[in-house]
């Protein structure tokens, strides 16, 4: 078990390294540097350009500095943009630790701020939950809770009353949740509740009011709700036909006891396993919903960074989200082995 975990975690390093390299190449494939590119921004003169490049470490070689190696400078060989960003290097004369220490680099657009300050630091005097990442995490958790609290009972009732009107109604909801993309669902709900019935503001200004969280959380969680309901129903239907359920009934257990202790406990195994990646998907996939609702989270910051061409923000977001997905996948494999000892670790 421990060996499996260690191997998976070690494998994480090369994967993240390649992910970072691909993103790095793509970011630099865009013609021009971050400072001479933006037509809206005033063009900077050559000296300022040089200073800015030095300040942001852009004066180094991108990959490997072969000329430095020729001069016998082995350290200089690795003193490049990529390694400075990922591991660390000298920027502006002083050594700075890179992404592995949690430094995501200075923002190219918001002067004097690093990416981690923008994303992780809450506003003055607020809790960490009020940072951009905190907002996204809260929204993701809320959507997850909504999906679980509604989806699981829906699937259970659906299975217990198979082929009744209740079953068909919940199947209809589940099917529409799987087929209609979440952002289209969001558009429908915003137009109905905000534009036509004026029940909520289209783009809420004040997110401390809990009622404005309902719609984004529902939209974000709806796809997962549908998935959970379908999975729970299928899994319940399978468990219901097992011999041990007949045994439980035969020994005179109450209906409630049979459902809760015997059916639910076993039927939940496949459902629980999708929750880890589901949360990761909710947090990393929420940028479109966040943009739609003007939600002050990390995802919307990412979309803003696209229009502002804030390279370091895009790079950091991609890396962190990829890391989250990886960790979620490893967690699933672990949870599987705990819940179902028949599954052997491979």
């Amino acid at each position: 078990m421990a060996r499996f975990l260690i191997r998976r975690l070690l494998w994480l390093i090369p994967v993240m390294f390649v992910v970072a390299a691909i993103t790095f190449i793509l970011m630099h494939a865009a013609p021009g540097g971050p400072f001479d590119k933006d037509p809206q921004q005033r063009q900077v003169d050559a000296i300022t350009q040089k200073r800015l490049n030095a300040q942001f470490g852009l004066d180094k070689e991108m990959w490997l500095d072969f000329p430095a190696l020729m001069q016998g400078n082995v350290v200089g060989f690795f003193d490049t943009q990529f390694f400075t960003y990922m591991i660390g290097g000298t920027v502006n004369g002083e050594w700075r630790c890179g992404f592995i220490c949690g430094n995501m680099g200075p923002s190219f657009r918001q002067r004097g701020m690093t990416v981690q300050q923008i994303v992780l630091d809450p506003p003055e005097g607020k809790s960490p939950w009020d940072s951009k990442a905190g907002y996204s995490l809260r929204l993701g958790l809320l959507a997850l809770i909504f999906a679980v609290v509604v989806g699981i009972p829906m699937g259970v009732i659906s299975a217990l009353r198979q082929n009744t009107a209740v079953d068909y109604a919940s199947l209809f909801i589940a099917t529409s949740g799987v087929t209609v993309p979440s952002f289209v669902m969001g558009i429908f709900l915003i137009i109905i509740f905000a534009v036509w019935f004026h029940l909520i503001p289209v783009v809420p200004r004040d997110w401390s009011d809990p009622t404005v969280w309902i719609l984004p959380a529902v939209v974000l969680g709806f796809g997962l709700l549908a998935q959970t309901a379908r999975l729970t129903r299928a899994s319940m239907l399978e468990v219901m036909r097992q011999d041990y359920i007949r045994t439980a009934r035969a020994k005179g257990l109450s209906n409630r006891m049979v459902i809760v202790r015997h059916m639910l406990k076993n039927a939940m195994i496949p459902v629980v396993t999708i929750m880890g990646p589901a949360l990761a998907a909710l947090v990393t996939g929420s940028f479109i919903i966040e943009t739609m609702f003007g939600f002050p989270g990390w995802g919307r910051q990412f979309v803003l960074a696209i229009s502002q061409r804030d390279y370091s923000m895009i790079l950091a977001t991609t890396l962190v989200f990829a890391l989250l997905i990886q960790i979620a996948n490893i967690t699933v494999d672990l949870v599987y082995t705990f819940l179902d000892p028949r599954m052997k670790v491979s």
Binding site: W11, V15, M16, V18, V19, I22, T23, L26, M27, A29, A30, P31, A281, T284, G285, F287, I288, I306, I314, T317, T318, F321, A322, I325, Q326, N329
Partner: peptide, 23 residues
């Protein structure tokens, strides 16, 4: 496969489109 699966696919589309649109 491992590497592609570790990229959230929508994010990957966004990054590619962002980086290469001007080329």
């Amino acid at each position: 496969t491992d590497i592609v699966y570790s990229f959230p696919d929508l994010l990957f589309f966004v990054v590619i489109m962002f980086a290469l649109r001007g080329t």
